[in-house]
């Protein structure tokens, strides 16, 4: 499949491919804008997404030197205040300021197949013991199951990419998989972070899987991008009308089977989102 010029793989696009190859084709090959509702209730989803975005920005502000009290003074939403206080407590517990070198909002990229794989990290910290910790701030409303997280491509891509492309964050020394840990920290559940360690064996398996996925995409013709058999994915997919897979979006709160807050994990990073826009 000829991918658009400049296309780069990300955990979001690969996750789309794994969930539904057709979705990948429509979104990244055809670049088809299809503005249907992704999940209900729409206003609440939007509100949550905005709060999540604001929360990420506040952490970045804090980590680049804006005093916490100045940031705190600007909070207007109660939920955000709670997340923020949880974060400050976590920051103190981890003693991030004293013990580590911090790299917030950093992008890494490495070759894969005939393309590149890229990811934007919320935070990478170089610890005094030489280990590197990836922290991903999550504002999910429900704590996801560990097994679900483990399978997510984000958990596979981030540590892999840090080892492959992060030498410059480690004073230009290679980063061995054993040095890496990935933490999902939940603003709503600050005491239940999920920590994933990394090792050579896992990295080898990740590399094989990522290369397999990229090759399958590069080699496949349009017919290979078939619709998923798991119709649950269609409930939260904007292309459902195009594929004849339903009318309304499902409700994240009432759908018992949808344990995970899919939208909050749906990081569809691409070059257009990273680069600055013209004002």
């Amino acid at each position: 499949m000829r991918l658009p010029k400049g296309f780069q793989f990300s955990q979001g696009s690969l996750q789309d491919y794994v969930d539904c190859a057709r979705r990948f084709f429509l979104r990244y090959v055809q670049r088809l804008a299809w503005p249907a509702v992704e999940s209900e209730p729409i206003l609440e989803s939007e509100h949550y997404a905005q709060l999540g975005e604001q929360f990420h920005k506040m952490i970045q502000q804090h980590l680049i030197g804006v005093p916490a009290e100045k940031i705190s003074a600007m909070i207007t939403a109660e939920e955000l205040r709670e997340w923020w206080e949880n974060y400050l407590e976590y920051y103190r517990q981890q003693a991030m300021a004293n013990q580590t070198q911090l790299f917030p909002e950093i992008i890494l990229s490495a070759p894969i197949g005939n393309h590149r794989l890229m990811a934007k990290f919320d935070l990478i910290s170089l610890q005094k013991d030489g280990s590197l910790v990836i922290t991903d701030w999550k504002t999910a409303r429900k704590p996801p199951q560990r097994i679900w997280l483990e399978r997510r491509l984000q958990t596979r891509v981030y540590p892999y990419l840090l080892s492959k492309a992060g030498d410059f964050l480690n004073n230009n020394h290679p980063i061995y998989p054993e040095q890496i840990r990935m933490i999902y920290w939940f603003a709503n559940f600050p005491d239940q972070p999920e920590v994933f360690s990394y090792d050579r064996k896992t990295m080898k398996a990740d590399q094989e899987r990522l290369e397999y996925l990229v090759e399958a995409i590069e080699m496949g013709d349009e017919k290979a991008f078939h619709l998923t058999d798991d119709k649950k994915h269609c409930q939260f997919c904007v292309y459902r009308s195009l594929c004849g897979r339903g009318i309304q979006a499902s409700n994240l709160d009432t759908d018992e089977e949808s344990v995970e807050d899919i939208t909050s994990f749906d990081d569809r990073l691409d070059i257009d989102q990273i680069a600055e826009i013209e004002y």
Partner: peptide, 27 residues
């Protein structure tokens, strides 16, 4: 974006207007 480019970070491409907007937002 070609595969041959070494692995690493990402060059920040922006306009002065984009930089202004980003800095005002952050600070």
């Amino acid at each position: 974006q070609i595969p041959g480019v070494s692995a690493g970070g990402f060059v920040a491409a922006m306009t002065m207007g984009g930089m202004a907007r980003r800095m005002v937002d952050l600070f």
